[in-house]
Design a protein around this nucleic acid. Structure first.
Lengths: 150, 150
DNA sequence: TTGACTTGATTTCATATGAGACGATTTATG
DNA sequence: CATAAATCGTCTCATATGAAATCAAGTCAA
């Protein structure tokens, strides 16, 4: 049972290499961590959002999101407003300077995605997409998450 | 630029789901963390090894390996002996009880690998293997690691 | 041989993480 | 209503991580 042929190990190693690479780029160009970057990406995509929506869309732990949001607010990239209906909740919105950063973040992301994908054929990119979806679902099923109701 | 279509994000999420799943299994059945499990896997595969070899073969940071080795030794699963030629180095070897655990670890690993892989066709498994290799290499190249000399 | 440099493993220190507790709300139930 | 239960975001605490410092041991060069 060679470790380097063990699928979970291989996925983990590759994911870590990719993450480290991207984390370094975000950090040096924008001073953003990966959680911060993800929040920016989600909040920038739609005009304004609840923290809860950000949690769902990033798939990150609520504590992680909470901290990223606080740091982004401290950096002046994000505004937090009390939700009108539910005073426990927050509405998140990019500030003007946050939007400016977002405008730079998107092309860099595309560029890096392209750089990675260029190691593959178009067919392989499509295959990878489907494979990741299937494996992700299977992992969730095995974790005891109920399969999708029909 | 939708986050859920961003390749590095997708890989990271899937890898984390798989890792969490496997970490939970190792933990509940053997009380092993992922770093500990990896060290066991590598040391069990070949009779005896240097810590340096384990670092190379697992791809983990030396501090992480060092700690995993110490914990495994504390649990009585691993023996650490001074290298005869180089007294700074260690020779690692599974104890009798470490071997017993290893014998159980291997079939569980195969079983879990099979459970994951059964979400895919045989062709997809092969594709994934090649794709991971290519992406891993590309990520390393982009990180500034010299491409393989010819 | 001696002193400078390299290398193996561990320790120190600063940072990231998430489970669970918490205070502030909102919602459900009697 | 009123009060129990649930939910939102944060904080506390215990644990994991790796960069850099450290100590021990080995190698190299003069």
């Amino acid at each position: 049972m060679a470790l380097h042929e063990f699928l979970p190990y291989r996925i983990s190693v590759v994911a870590e290499a990719v993450s480290n690479l991207f984390a370094a780029r975000y950090q040096e160009r924008f001073g953003l961590t990966i959680p911060e970057w993800r929040v920016m990406a989600v909040v920038g995509e739609n005009t304004s959002q609840t923290t809860q929506q950000v949690i769902e869309r990033t798939g990150m732990d609520r504590v992680r999101v909470s901290r990223a949001v606080i740091r982004l607010a401290d950096k002046g990239l994000l505004d937090r407003m009390v939700h009108h209906r539910d005073h426990r909740a927050q509405i998140l919105q990019l500030t003007r300077s946050g939007q400016a950063v977002y405008q730079q973040i998107v092309p860099l992301a595309r560029e890096m995605q392209a750089a990675l994908a260029s190691a593959l054929t178009a067919a392989e990119v499509a295959q990878l997409d489907g494979i990741l979806t299937k494996i992700g679902q299977r992992a969730l099923e095995m974790s005891g998450v109920a399969p999708a109701p029909r």
